[in-house]
Simulated assay, not measured.
Amino acid sequence: MEWAGEGVILGCRRHGENDVIVEAMTRERGRHLGLVRGGRSRRHQASLQPGNKVGLVWRARLDGHLGNYAVEPVRLRAAELMESAIGIYAIQALAALLRLLPERDPHPALYDALEVVLDHLENAEIAGALAVRFELQVLNELGFGLDLSQCAATGRREDLVFVSPKSGRAVSRDAGAPYADRMLPLPAFLLATGAEPRQADGQAIGEAFRMTGFFLHRYVWEPRGIQPSDAREGLIQAVLRASG
């Protein structure tokens, strides 16, 4: 068995004296592990850092085996990520979210989103907004997507300012006003469309992370008996500090 493609390094763990098991997110094969022989050598260490984009060739006798990776650098982002708290926490937080998905289950939209987030971490407002959108995409891929397209009560598409904690659907200002104390705020930047990354201020980012955290806790973390990664809180705080 053999395949070739590109992937983003999520992490590595030591295997024996000289080898490492590499965890990479690929577009066509999802989160995929493989053994890199001699991976602890100086030749490989620079390439096998989290956040780096690499070319991968995977080989195994049978499809279900761990298999071996041959790795070549494509874009070495790790040094840039290590320059800021946002970068350090972001790659850890994003990797933790991707580990919620089954191994080798393809999620091309998440792979593309991962690349976009990693390419925009130098701007706190954009990085925070993209990280929240990534969490929304993870919820969607797990089957718990939120419907922010129209008001759950009236069907209106204008003046959407709340999210119902019960249904995960948007609610307009007028329809939600009597229940405002029970609603989750819906930051306006999450309603924006278009290919260009949208930035948001610190308050909106904080509200958005609280919203996604609420649904991740309800549908994912609590049912699985797990806690959110410490890196997620570190990323939120780093973004809020940088956003002023």
Rank of each mutant, 00 (worst) to 15 (best):
K53N: 09
L56Q: 08
V57R: 15
V57S: 14
V57K: 15
W58E: 07
A60S: 15
A60L: 06
R61Y: 07
R61L: 14
L62E: 15
D63V: 14
L66W: 02
N68F: 05
Y69N: 03
Y69H: 06
A70E: 14
E72R: 11
V74N: 01
R75Y: 06
R75K: 12
L76M: 15
R77G: 02
L81K: 07
M82W: 12
M82R: 15
S84T: 15
S84G: 11
I91S: 06
L94W: 10
L94C: 10
A96C: 11
A96M: 08
A96W: 10
A96Y: 05
L97W: 12
L97G: 00
L98W: 04
R99L: 03
P102D: 12
E103P: 02
E103A: 14
D105L: 13
P108Q: 12
L110F: 02
L110G: 00
E115P: 00
E115F: 01
V116D: 00
V117P: 10
L121D: 08
L121P: 10
E122K: 13
N123V: 04
N123Q: 08
G128E: 08
L130T: 05
A131M: 01
R133N: 06
R133A: 08
E135D: 05
L136S: 02
L136R: 11
V138K: 05
L139P: 13
L139K: 13
N140C: 10
G143R: 08
F144V: 04
G145C: 08
L146I: 09
